[in-house]
Simulated scan of single mutants.
Amino acid sequence: MLANAPTLIKIAIFFGVWMGLWMPIAVITALALNWRPPRPLNETQKLTLLAPLYGIAPLVLWKISQVEGRSFWDYGLAWRSEFFTSISIGFGLAVISLIVLFGFQFTLGWINWRQPHWGQSDQQSSGLNSDLPPENGWIRLGQKASILFPILLIALWISSTEELVFRGFLQKQLQQDYSGFVAAAIVSLIFALTHLIWEVRNTFPQLPGLGLMGMVLTFACFCNGGSLGLAIGLHAGWIWGISSLDTVVGVNPTGKVPEWVTGLAGKPLAGVLGIVMLLVVAGFLGIYFLSNFPVTF
């Protein structure tokens, strides 16, 4: 019966089953973490709640694919060298876009690097040049840098799951009833709004940027012939790059330009420059990939 159900019913069933399976686990986990909404989540609490949520999603989609009589891999995943090459290309493009974004702002003096691991007192007590961090500063910086690889694994896991759900399942389901562009707009809106689950105040200003990010990721799938590889790489690269920067160094606006230019509350997607970065990446995808692999969007 599910195989012949309307598209919107299938989507509603997916989210209903997904949330229904996760909610009891989430309640027990929240109680164990002594967390109650609407209090903000720290990173550890968020990951603890995220793990079962993202662990359940592929299982639900696998079961839906069985009921529909299709392969789970039809959602855009593949164990081929080209798939992993696309992930690598997307990841590299995302990291380069962030380097350009933050490098541009730093060059113009719009942001400063935060360096809390070495302060004035440390420099004076170490007897080193004031331009260099003391030895314990390097140690603390090294400790922070040591988590870059775990952040990479988390970024790949989050991006793979979200791309499977949004660009893999939802996009392909909606395209049965709508054009690719309309389906992408709907999926991107849902993608943006779901981020409000974790935090409303800081996420709300990012909604336009998150929606555009969803459109760019969908466009990446079209450019990649329906494969999720390029989108996963881009998504993971942006997560890893911003999370790593916040963890190891971090940035502070200097106040030379309004905060809405660099990003409200330090969030790039809540600023004009973050939006421009996404548009530039989309333009690059269009020029490079579509010129070699034309598709209909």
Results as ranks from 00 to 15, higher is better:
236 A>K: 07
267 K>L: 00
207 L>K: 09
195 H>F: 11
215 M>S: 02
206 Q>W: 09
248 V>T: 10
198 W>F: 15
229 G>F: 08
261 V>W: 11
202 N>W: 11
274 G>S: 01
278 L>N: 04
266 G>T: 01
217 L>A: 02
218 T>L: 03
261 V>A: 00
217 L>D: 07
189 L>P: 04
201 R>M: 14
252 N>L: 13
240 W>C: 11
192 A>F: 12
264 L>S: 03
190 I>K: 10
246 D>K: 13
200 V>I: 15
270 A>F: 08
190 I>M: 13
247 T>V: 07
224 N>F: 06
214 G>P: 03
244 S>R: 11
210 L>Y: 10
258 P>M: 09
278 L>H: 02
276 V>E: 07
220 A>T: 10
235 H>M: 09
274 G>D: 01
271 G>N: 02
273 L>F: 12
191 F>E: 07
230 L>T: 03
269 L>E: 14
256 K>Y: 02
221 C>K: 11
233 G>C: 10
257 V>Y: 02
214 G>Y: 05
277 M>I: 01
233 G>S: 10
268 P>I: 08
259 E>F: 06
222 F>C: 02
195 H>D: 08
258 P>Q: 13
206 Q>S: 14
260 W>C: 02
203 T>L: 09
277 M>E: 13
199 E>P: 05
277 M>C: 08
266 G>F: 07
264 L>K: 11
201 R>Q: 15
215 M>I: 15
273 L>Q: 04
231 A>M: 07
250 G>E: 09
232 I>Q: 05
205 P>V: 12
266 G>R: 02
273 L>H: 00
202 N>V: 13
209 G>F: 10
197 I>S: 13
235 H>R: 00
207 L>C: 13
254 T>D: 00
